[in-house]
Design a protein around this nucleic acid. Structure first.
Lengths: 347, 347
DNA sequence: TATTAGCACTCTAATCGGGTGAGTGCTAAA
DNA sequence: TTTAGCACTCACCCGATTAGAGTGCTAATA
């Protein structure tokens, strides 16, 4: 059997109506509310066909039909005409991102919150801090004996500091010397070869400080490790509570499971795209997380100067307004890309 | 009317039973399960008295009785005998805190999570970072022109850094000079007088850098402000989802309101004690937050070297096991105080 | 041949009424 | 003062009934 124009129209109408009402849609409702030009009996026949083809299903005999996952998929791929975001909303989003961009984490958190307010769904931002390399190191005195401050500047512009134990007193002068030695090497040598390179430089009066230098090299290693760990993605949610309002989640166990997943940040990260750059619509069981069986997840990656560095997504019940949400996700990902790129252009 | 020994016993039994079962307690249940030495009819009479006195109430005629807030209050104040924490649990808690103490925030988060697992309730830690003063400042070169790194060491040992715009190129040499000037003053002068003191020092070749110095002073101010903002209490929750399991919260609106309050961190802060040092038991409407009308909140402050720096609390339905929770809160607050104090002894 | 009106049928959700059980309050006897 | 006994109340469960929305099928129609 083939899906002809009339079937398409009916499927479209069923999905429209179901998205709005969350109730199974019957043939009479369709013939009344949508201008299909045929009687409810004809619609019934067509619906019967659509059901056989798997696009819609009946919760029980003698109830109206609801879209199946396949139905939503067809809708998203072929029926849904693109929607331009309302200008007011677009401005709102861009302002929100732009005004908070100085504190990037802050910008993410606020964006997630704003989008969830606009959609009444749950939004999530994942920021994948990419690894970076050390560009400059400073060793500075600290007021506790046997400890110094190590300050590192990274090639993405980030500055980090740590207090490190070195077990002996070192004068400001010596720290300066060490700083110079490390800085000479750190920019020009690969991280693995730093140790070797630094040790080459150690001669004369510094030989007796061999132990100290080992300590420092060790601290640098640790700092790099901890940076890598931090680079593990950060997750920002907005409007998780909105899920409680969705009729498909009027069930305590579901809510509990859902919030449980929200708390396990790693799971969410696994569900959002990392490298894929386009827009992704995952419907129902297409996303492999049990609690999200009744959900759809629309995601896109955002980029800095063309390189994907994180993703943005909106989560809601499969019965969501795909048109609007898709437009929203696209726009947010683009705005994030644009604004973050423009801010870090000179890095 | 006076509350005599028998009434006390009956009230005690009612509360015990209700805490365990979450069901209204009837006179027959009491006479069967508790060895009160009188018939159910007598208990009925006594219960009638207790109700008149306001210690218990009836959800509806012909149901059993449940404790009123006054009843819980009486129980907590006069009936409940103290409970020693199970040794295994005590060890578990201390290990958890001790093993995570290097990252204080981490220790708080894990402690909250552990306690909520042990009690099946929600736990919350508030850490009030006290304000501190700058002890040392370094100005260092940054790789973007017109910007430098400002590194501040605070008198509680914390080290912070920030990249600041200064709008002009400054040599490493000049930065060193400025660092020296600022450092001379910053330790010895009150923050308000820093500006004055620094400017006094500015003569000769530095006069032409007046604008630069203004910029730096401004940055220092901003850093102090932002530190103060951060010093606003941090909140760590554990087991917020446990509230969903409580029969008194089998209601979507309540759950939603509750989680809404959890998200508004400031509200929680307002509910926990800041300066009060002992143990506080707030029952039902004793805590002035509408959503917590059916909750009790048991809190205690923890201290560093005798000075309260935060608080720990457990939130649950009014029908909670006060004996156990009180013991738990006491123990956690003491452990936090002890372990944190011992770690920061030399600060 | 495609469409439609009509009708019997199905299933859910809401409503109603009786029965059950836990519990109370009151009264009168111990 | 305590207790046994009894009438009464109320929530809750269960089954039957009904209303309503919707379907599938059939036969008539264009």
């Amino acid at each position: 059997m083939e899906i002809d124009e009339r079937k398409r129209k009916i499927l479209w109408a069923i999905i429209q109506d179901y998205i709005a009402s969350a109730e199974p849609v019957g043939s009479r409702t369709l013939s009344r509310k949508y201008d299909l030009g045929v009687s409810s009996a004809t619609i019934r026949n067509e619906m019967s066909d659509l059901e056989e083809m798997g696009y819609i299903e009946q919760p029980h005999t003698s109830s109206g039909r609801i879209p199946s996952e396949l139905g939503y998929r067809y809708y998203v791929d072929y029926l849904m005409e693109p929607l331009a975001l309302d200008q007011g909303e677009a401005d709102l989003i861009q302002n929100e991102i732009a005004s908070k961009i100085d504190e990037v984490d802050n910008a993410f958190a606020h964006t997630a919150s704003l989008i969830s307010r606009l959609t009444q769904l749950t939004s999530v931002v994942i920021s994948q801090n990419r690894h970076s390399a050390i560009k400059m190191i400073h060793f500075l005195p600290y007021h506790k004996p046997g400890q110094i401050i190590m300050l590192t500047v990274w090639d993405d512009g980030k500055v980090e500091n740590a207090v490190v134990d070195i077990g002996e007193e070192v004068s400001a002068q010596e720290l300066q010397t060490l700083t110079n030695i490390f800085n000479d090497k750190v920019g020009s040598v690969s991280p693995g070869k730093l140790k070797e390179a630094v040790l080459q430089e150690v001669h004369n009066e510094l030989v007796q400080k061999k132990y100290l230098i080992d300590q420092l090299l060790h601290s640098v290693d640790r700092m790099m490790e901890s940076q890598e760990e931090e680079a593990i993605n950060k997750v920002f949610y907005g409007g998780t509570l909105n899920m409680i309002n969705q009729p498909e989640f009027k069930n305590f166990d579901k809510i509990k499971d859902l919030f449980g997943v929200f708390e396990e940040r790693n799971k969410i990260i696994g569900l959002l795209p990392r490298h894929y750059e386009g827009l992704r619509v995952q419907i129902g069981s297409e996303n492999h997380e049990e609690v999200f069986q009744d959900c759809s997840l629309i995601t896109a990656t955002y980029k800095i100067n063309g390189m994907p560095i994180g993703s943005f997504g909106i989560l809601g019940p499969t019965r969501m307004d795909y048109r609007r949400v898709v437009a929203m996700v696209k726009f947010v990902a683009e705005s994030l890309s644009f604004i973050i790129s423009s801010k870090t252009f000179d890095s």
